[in-house]
Nucleic acid binder design. Structure first.
Ligand SMILES: [Mn+2]
Ligand SMILES: [Mn+2]
Ligand SMILES: [Zn+2]
Ligand SMILES: [Zn+2]
Lengths: 154, 154
DNA sequence: ATCTATATAATATTTATTATTATATAATAT
DNA sequence: ATATTATATAATAATAAATATTATATAGAT
């Protein structure tokens, strides 16, 4: 719902400002696109959307800003098997189902209690000392609904 | 121990043959290297090791064979944040801790009961119909022991 | 031994990403 | 407001991993 999207946007924007980065129109637009998207776009996908509002935008600028957002942990990078990086504006706890054929990425719900019961336990038993974990990834590779149907009908 | 490594090698070799692929010396050597390695090598890493025995080996051949092994699910591809593909000859159930600074990949133990309790449950509740999962990924991103120490002493 | 299919090697090309540099704009101070 | 400075953007060039192409070599089959 709109309300949540906006608060997410505000969170990112205020973090950007607090950390001393300037808020340019291009940067704001990139933040909007990536935070509102549900489709895990690549840098080029973001670039293509941007060009409507900013026809002169440089792809480099997109990469720079997505890297910035990633470095402050406001977007998550996802790597599919067709080896380009995709960006997720939803940094909440969840996993991904990645289609090995078409590359489509869809969200997989994980709730907090699952996390406590599994990830947290794994971290505790595997990384006792001198190891700092600040992120996790959970992926299910296979065939998405569409590609599954195609394969079945061969 | 040696015995297990050899049976693993035999498994792959017989699968290769059964599927109708020919077993060339180069291919055998690549299978040996990747199935015996514990360090999750990249294609170039494998290439460099190969050159001792086969100075004329082509990098393309390495890529082709690693892709082949991946396609028959006898090696797993791993992507680090520095965006090159690494190969894991150990296809048993386990996760990876990936260092965001140096890219080092180390194994994280998961036992079968954990898997049943978590992955399997997630698969069942998220992918009811028309979705085929044949692989999973579990990663912990952070700083490895060495990089952690470095950062701490800054 | 010959034939045919497949694998390899050498080379060229593609594609995603990063680096460089010049220009423009935002934040800040005057 | 204007000038100053630091940062961001745009245009361009460079890098590096992976893939495609083609010719040669080799494995497996006849
Ligand atoms: Mn997501
Ligand atoms: Mn491993
Ligand atoms: Zn698909
Ligand atoms: Zn490290």
């Amino acid at each position: 719902m709109k309300h949540q999207v906006n608060s997410r946007l505000n969170d990112i924007v205020s973090k950007i400002k607090k950390m001393g980065y300037s808020l340019t129109p291009q940067r704001l637009e990139i933040i909007k696109i990536v935070s509102e998207s549900k489709s895990h776009p690549s840098a080029v996908d973001v670039y293509d959307k941007l060009r409507k509002a900013y026809p002169m935008i440089s792809l480099n600028t997109v990469y720079k800003n997505l890297s910035l957002l990633s470095s402050i942990h406001e977007v998550k990078e996802i790597r599919t098997l067709q080896n380009s990086v995709h960006y997720d504006g939803d940094i909440s706890l969840h996993g991904h189902a990645i289609c090995e054929k078409c590359g489509r990425i869809i969200d997989v719900k994980i709730d907090e209690s699952d996390f406590k019961g599994f990830f947290d336990a794994k971290i505790k038993e595997n990384f006792k000392e001198n190891y700092y974990i600040n992120n996790y990834g959970l992926e299910f590779y296979g065939l998405c609904g569409l590609c599954y149907k195609e394969t079945a009908s061969d």
